[in-house]
C-alpha cells in the first residue's frame, strides 16, 4: 500500500495569505504602535533639521563671531538668538546636532561591537571563559560610568589632532568622546547578549545545527546571532539616546568636544552662566536633545514590541 504519488500531499492552497517575512511581520506590528510612529516622525524631523539646515547655513556661519550682537534674543536674522560671542544659535544647533548624532551613532557602534563580541563568546562557550568575562563585565559595571567618562576624557583630550571628513573639520576630541562613551557602555549589552546566547544555544534548532555538523562559527553567526537581533537592536537604539546624553554631560562639564566645534552638549555648557537672563541659549539645544532622546526611546519601545520573538507565532 503506497500513498507516495497521491497529490494530497502537495498543500497547494493551504497557505493562501501572502507570505510575510519576519521583517514584514515586525513592520506590521511596529505600525500599530502609535508612539513609535511619533518617534520616527521626530527623528526624521531632527535628521532633516541637521542635514537640510546645513545647506542653508554654512559651517562658517556657525562659527562666525560677531561681538556687536552678543547675547541677542531671537530675531529675524538669528531666529534662535545668538550666544556670548555673537554666534548664531540656529546654525550652531544644526552643526552641533550633526556632531551629537554622529557621536551617538558611532559610540553605539563601538559599544555594540564590544558588547556583542564579549556576550556571544561568554554565552556560547560558557565555563571558565564565561566566568572570567562576566566578572570583568561586572567590574566595569561597578565603576560609575560618569567617573570613567570624565577620567578618560581628561587623560585622552588633546592627544588626537583635528581631522577632516566629508568637507567638515572635526576636533580630535570627537574621536576621544566616541571611544570613551562606547567603551564605557557595552556592559549592559554584553549581559543581554550572553543571556540570549545561553537560552538560544539550548534551543532545538541549535542542537539540530550541531547534529548536522555545522561549525561553531556558523552556529553563532547564522543561528544564534540572527535570533538575538531583536534585543540588540532595541538596546542599541536606546543606547544612541544615552550616548547623546552622555556626550552632553561630558561636554557640559567642559571635558567633551572642544569649541569652536559645536555640540548640543557644549552649547549647554556655554549657556550655564546665562540660565536666567538668556534662556534661548539653553532652551533650543536642550529641546533638541530632549526631542531626539524622546524620539529614540519611542522607537525603541516600538521595536521592542515589534521584534518580540513571540510575534511570529502570534500572527499565525
Amino acid at each position: 500500500m503506497t500513498t507516495t504519488e497521491v497529490s494530497w500531499e502537495f498543500f497547494e492552497e493551504e497557505i493562501e495569505r501572502p507570505p510575510l517575512t519576519p521583517a514584514q511581520v515586525a513592520w506590521r506590528r511596529f505600525r500599530c504602535h502609535k508612539m513609535a510612529l511619533v518617534g520616527v516622525g521626530l527623528l526624521i524631523a531632527i535628521f532633516l533639521y541637521v542635514i537640510v539646515g546645513a545647506f542653508i547655513y554654512s559651517e562658517a556661519d556657525a562659527n562666525r563671531t560677531d561681538l556687536s550682537i552678543t547675547l541677542s534674543p531671537p530675531s529675524r536674522d538669528h531666529p534662535l538668538g545668538t550666544d556670548g560671542t555673537g554666534r548664531c544659535i540656529l546654525a550652531r544647533t544644526i552643526y552641533g546636532g550633526q556632531i551629537s548624532v554622529l557621536i551617538g551613532l558611532s559610540a553605539v557602534i563601538v559599544s555594540v561591537t564590544v558588547g556583542v563580541l564579549i556576550g556571544a563568546i561568554s554565552g556560547y562557550y560558557g565555563g571558565h571563559i564565561d566566568a572570567i568575562l562576566m566578572r570583568f563585565t561586572e567590574a566595569m559595571f561597578n565603576i560609575p560610568q560618569l567617573f570613567l567618562l570624565i577620567l578618560l576624557a581628561k587623560l585622552l583630550s588633546g592627544k588626537i589632532p583635528t581631522f577632516k571628513l566629508l568637507g567638515r573639520s572635526f576636533s580630535g576630541s570627537v574621536i576621544v568622546i566616541i571611544g570613551v562613551i562606547g567603551l564605557t557602555s557595552w556592559m549592559y549589552l554584553a549581559r543581554i547578549v550572553r543571556a540570549n546566547f545561553l537560552s538560544l544555544k539550548e534551543q532545538e534548532f541549535v542542537t539540530a545545527a550541531r547534529c548536522i555538523g555545522s561549525r561553531n562559527f556558523s552556529i553563532i553567526f547564522e543561528h544564534i546571532l540572527p535570533n538575538s537581533v531583536a534585543p540588540i537592536v532595541v538596546a542599541a537604539t536606546l543606547g544612541v539616546a544615552s550616548a547623546i546624553i552622555n556626550e552632553a554631560y561630558v561636554s557640559f562639564l567642559g571635558l567633551g568636544v572642544q569649541p569652536p566645534t559645536a555640540t548640543w552638549g557644549n552649547m549647554l555648557d556655554q549657556a550655564y552662566h546665562h540660565l536666567d537672563s538668556e534662556p534661548w541659549m539653553w532652551f533650543f539645544p536642550g529641546m533638541l536633545i530632549l526631542l531626539t532622546v524622546l524620539g529614540i526611546n519611542f522607537v525603541g519601545d516600538g521595536l521592542r514590541d515589534a521584534l518580540d520573538p513571540r510575534a511570529l507565532t502570534q500572527t499565525e
Binding site: E204, F205, I212, G213, N227
Partner: peptide, 18 residues
C-alpha cells in the same frame, strides 16, 4: 555527522525562525 541525523520532537523549536 553526515552519516547520522536526527528528527526532533518539537517542529516549532527545531527550525530556525529566521
Amino acid at each position: 555527522r553526515r552519516r547520522m541525523q536526527m528528527i526532533f520532537q518539537d517542529p516549532y523549536a527545531s527550525l530556525n525562525p529566521r
